[in-house]
């Protein structure tokens, strides 16, 4: 059994996570924000798989990451439907323009 050092994988996961967070906070495009969410979920997935390989977490890690993938797909579908509605109401996808409830 070849041992694997989990740290490089975890660092890649951290880069994905941080990029996702930065993307979510800086993008004004609604779909860009959605992409940031996908990046964050992928960073988490990579960590799950790494731990499933390198620690006694075992198969559970892979099962969790499968659930994450499926739920991310569902989330993307709903978020896109919301984005389309937003576009229809505002004729733009810029999330900064959705400020009607701003007092």
């Amino acid at each position: 059994m070849q041992p694997i050092d989990p740290n490089p994988f975890l660092i890649v996961g951290a880069v994905l996570f941080v990029c996702g967070v930065v993307c979510m906070t800086t993008k004004r495009n609604g779909i860009g924000v959605l992409m940031g969410v996908e990046l964050v979920l992928n960073g988490a997935n990579l960590n799950f798989i790494t731990f499933s390989r390198c620690t006694p977490l075992g198969l559970d890690g892979q099962v969790f990451s499968l659930f994450v993938i499926v739920l991310a797909a569902a989330e993307a579908a709903v978020a896109l439907a919301i984005a389309l509605n937003f576009y229809n109401n505002h004729l733009t996808i810029d999330v900064d323009r959705g400020d009607e409830l701003h007092g």
Partner: peptide, 21 residues
């Protein structure tokens, strides 16, 4: 995040590995 992640010793060499292929 990276320094936190790397400061932990994740693999205990006595305990064996997970679904290691």
């Amino acid at each position: 995040v990276a320094s936190t992640v790397t400061s932990v010793r994740w693999v205990d060499s006595d305990k064996g590995q997970g679904v290691a292929s």
